[in-house]
Each structure stands twice: as C-alpha cells, then as structure tokens.
Design a protein around this nucleic acid. Structure first.
Lengths: 195, 195
DNA sequence: ACTAACCCGAACATCAGTGTTCAACAAGAG
DNA sequence: CTCTTGTTGAACACTGATGTTCGGGTTAGT
C-alpha cells in the first residue's frame, strides 16, 4: 500500500522530482493548518505554478490522498517504534507521547482527509493505530492495572478524544505544547486505573 | 442579547411567522447533520421556496447566526436549570448528563457556527457554559474531592473533549446514545478524583 | 549543443453555491 | 370583498474554486 507501483515510464527529471517533493511538503503543511486550503495556495507555498501541480497530481483529491498516505506511513513507522512492553501504564504513557506528537504536528490534516477520502479509506487508515492502543488496553486489563468496567472500544475512543482535545487546547493557548503530554497521560491513566 | 430588539414594523402575517419558524427548525436540524448544508436544502426541508427564505433572512450567515443564537439560549436555559449544589461529583454528573444531551442533539451545529461566526462571537458563546463547569470544578477542588494537580482550564477542556468524543463514538456506532452519559460520567469522575 | 522533458502564466470552460429581480399567483387581515 | 402582504419558480449576475489548454520559455540529461 505504501509501496509505489513500479512505474514503467523512464525516471522523472531532477527538477520534476524536486517540485513534487516541494508540493507534497507544502501541501502537508498547508492542510495541517487549513483543511480547506485551495490548490492555488498550496502551489504558491510550494513555489510552483498551479499548472505544474496539476501536471504531477491528477486532482486535488489525488494530492490530498497522497499526502495522507505519506503521513500515515510515517506515523505508522513512529508508532511501530514505540516500546509497548513492560507495565501497561508506562507503555500507554509512551504511546500517548508519540500519538500526541503526531496529532499536534499534523493538526487539521485529519479534517482534510475526512472531507476527501471515502469512509472505507478512513476506516482503513485508523485501523492499525487503533488496534495498537486496543491491544495495549486489553493487556492492561488482563494484568489488572486497567479497569474492566468500561468497554474497550470506549477506552480507545477516550484516548483519541483527550489527545485531540489537547491539540485544540494548545491551539487556543490554554496550555502549552510542552505540558500537553503530561496532562494527557495523567488524565487518561487516572481514568483507566483499576480501582 | 437573546432579547430581540423591538421591531417598529407592524406584526408579520400568520403564514410568514409560521414559515419563519419552519425555516429555523429545518435549519437547526439540517445544520446539526451537515454544517455545510446549502440554503437550497434548508428551504426544501422547511417546505418553502428559496426566495421566501431570503425574504426572511438577509443571508445564509444571518440565518446560521439566528439558529445558533436560539440554540444557545435554549441550551443556556437547560444548563441553568441543573442543580449544582451538594457533592461536586454528583453535581458534575448532572451537569455532564445535560451537556451530553445538548451536544448529542445538536451534533455538527457547532462546526457550522465555527465556519460562520467570528472568533469573538464563538468565545462569547462558549463563555457562560464553560464558566459554569469551571466554577463547579473549583468548588470540588476546594472541598477536596477533585484533584488539584491539573490546571482548571485543562479539566474543563477534558469534559468537553470526552463529551464530544462520545458524540462521535455514538455516531460511529461504537456505543449507544443510552450508555453514553454513564461512560462519560465514569471516565471524567475517575480522571478528576483526588487521590 | 541538442532535444525531450519540464515550467509557467494567461486564458478558458465548468460547476456549485449565494444572492437578486421579476411577474404571476395565493392568502391573511380588515 | 379587497387590499396588502407574502409566496413562488424561473432566470439572472456574481463569486470562488477546480481542472484544462496553449504557446513560449527554461533546463536537465546525453
């Protein structure tokens, strides 16, 4: 999925590759700020003409899909590198830390994805990171450190809610980005603790 | 603010008043489902011509503002009726119950408001309900039943996050609307409990 | 240096939504 | 009953966005 299908066309020219990279980078940044940003602004931010952009991407939707795909695989990589062994509480804290960084970095990009991608694609995109949290929570319940009186699916959703809420709170200036991970961790772990 | 300025014009005709009511009702329902709904669809849902709608409301923005204003004052009324005395935990549970009902009922209307209203208007709209939660949390901290190691503003934001997350979870079918209040209450109270 | 690939701005077609005008028609208030 | 207010669909202008075409200019690769 993240591996590109082998193109049978001769390799692109150097400046074309550079422009494509610049467009993807600019699009990622722009969409993270404003999910409804126009193609025009993305092209301008990439230092490139709008026509050039359309030369490399079939449509706005295709560009957004490509950006989301890249961000997703990079995020997957980061999340896969998190150590989930040991005390589930510590593991969840580490997972939350990384999840927060990703969420904060890409801000409103998820909104752009929601507006562009199909529900099927969205479900697929959420599947792997969600499954990771779910596995960890289940282990914590088995080991008796997380409560068992709430549905697992709710607890997973709670992690997402609090992380997302923190992103908004930071954007609003209520708390700083530096203290956010601590607040999220403290809140979620208290909510999940077995009594 | 919620009181209409006394119009010096003669009272509207009966069918006009009825149509205005139908439009406001339809707009509330439509916007709660899709914040980007077109004026056309709102008019259709109200069983009225688009021109008629524009005869009663200067613009789409004016209509949205009116809808938000009405919803806000009704919500304010409901929230003001909540008994906030007694054990802060029980009081917060009651407040959460009502907050949940309102959030669930009006769904995506807040998104429509964000897209239409100014930041000033949004801040103003959030001020009163937020202040209510904040006062209650502060009292709970003074009385030693809520933790003091997290910023009050963060705790307020947490309530919002979890309620909003529950709305999404219900919409996604992960949990039912009936069990949502219980889950929210259980989660938030655990997160806020003094250790 | 030559050529194919690429860039770019301007102009165009298209589309969806907003907001307005008009003229015929319907209905409430007195 | 009648007159004023209100409703209506069709048609229009306008806006902002997407996506395309064209022609001339530029640049990377060999």
């Amino acid at each position: 999925m993240t591996t590109q299908p082998v193109t049978r066309t001769p390799p692109k020219r150097a400046d074309a590759r550079k422009n494509i990279a610049a467009i993807l980078e600019a699009a990622t940044e722009c969409l993270a700020r404003d999910p409804d940003v126009s193609v025009n602004e993305i092209a301008k931010a990439a230092g490139v003409g709008r026509v050039t952009l359309y030369g490399h991407f079939e449509s706005r939707a295709a560009l957004v899909a490509e950006v989301v795909d890249r961000v997703m695989s990079q995020s997957e990589e980061e999340l896969a590198a998190v150590d989930l062994s040991g005390d589930p509480r510590d593991a969840l804290a580490r997972l939350i830390e990384t999840t927060w960084e990703i969420t904060h970095r890409y801000g409103a990009l998820v909104v752009a994805a929601e507006e562009t991608l199909t529900h099927e694609q969205m479900r697929e995109a959420h599947q792997r990171p969600l499954a990771r949290v779910e596995r960890l929570i289940k282990r914590g319940r088995r080991e008796g450190v997380f409560r068992k009186d709430l549905p697992v699916v709710w607890m997973v959703s709670t992690v997402q809610s609090v992380v997302h809420g923190a992103s908004i709170a930071v954007h609003r200036g209520d708390v700083t980005a530096a203290q956010a991970p601590h607040l999220i961790r403290e809140t979620v772990l208290s909510a999940f603790a077995a009594q």
